[in-house]
């Protein structure tokens, strides 16, 4: 564990708490893409098939939290606050993402086993899981401030993982190409968002696309 990775994981936790806070406080999931949340649930379930493999208490607790919270968010969006979800705003075709990621995972993986291919699939899928949310944002052209804090925390988590990998490469000679390439793409997807968040939200303005 290093500073970057711990901070990244804490940002990831924070992002989920901010999302839960947004839904509970406003009693609405408007502005949140169900499709992105669905993809995250798929990501966590397919990645943590090794849940019973012991690495550390930290590792196990975090995995349980990510699986449980992602499914809980689906429950909130699909059942508890269903009336506040507007599917007509959430029109990104995730079938293509799922298909492309599965295909890539079948071709580019470390070992061709069931568990390993699904792990690789989850890495690729996480990289693009935010696209339905960003697409929704670009369609509506604006977002509630708390929703932008959620997205910022989520993007910061990915950015910090890049620093963690650089750190681990030099201190441990840790190499993981699949995770690096996917992580770099994932972080790059946030660059436009980061720019507007910095220009607008951090200066006290409403998040609006130019």
């Amino acid at each position: 564990m290093n500073f970057f990775r711990l901070t990244a994981d804490l940002m990831h936790l924070l992002s989920i708490f901010v999302l839960l806070l947004k839904i509970q406080k406003t009693r609405s999931c408007s502005g949140i893409s169900f499709k992105t949340q669905l993809l995250y649930a798929v990501v966590f379930v397919t990645r943590y098939l090794d849940l019973l493999k012991w690495i550390s208490l930290y590792n196990t607790l975090m995995k349980i939290f990510f699986i449980a919270s992602s499914i809980y968010i689906l429950y909130l969006m699909k059942i508890k606050f269903r009336a506040t979800y507007d599917p007509s705003q959430d029109t990104f075709r995730i079938e293509f993402l799922l298909g492309a990621c599965l295909l890539l995972a079948l071709v580019f993986n470390y070992t061709f086993t069931f568990i390993e291919v699904l792990w690789t699939f989850s890495i690729y899928l996480e990289a693009v899981a935010i696209l339905p949310q960003l697409f929704m944002l670009s369609r509506t052209g604006e977002a509630e401030t708390i929703t932008t804090h959620y997205l910022f925390a989520l993007g910061a988590y990915r950015g910090l993982y890049l620093l963690n990998w650089i750190w681990r490469f030099y201190t441990e000679h840790h190499i993981d190409w699949i995770v690096w390439v996917a992580g770099a793409i994932q972080t790059a997807l946030y660059s436009d968002f980061f720019y507007i968040y910095y220009k607008k939200v951090l200066h006290g303005q409403k998040f609006e696309l130019p």
Binding site: R5, D9, H12, I55, M62, Y110, T111, W177, V179
Partner: peptide, 10 residues
């Protein structure tokens, strides 16, 4: 060896 990558990250 890629198989030796320890999946300790989340």
């Amino acid at each position: 060896n890629a198989n030796k990558i320890i999946k300790d990250e989340l």
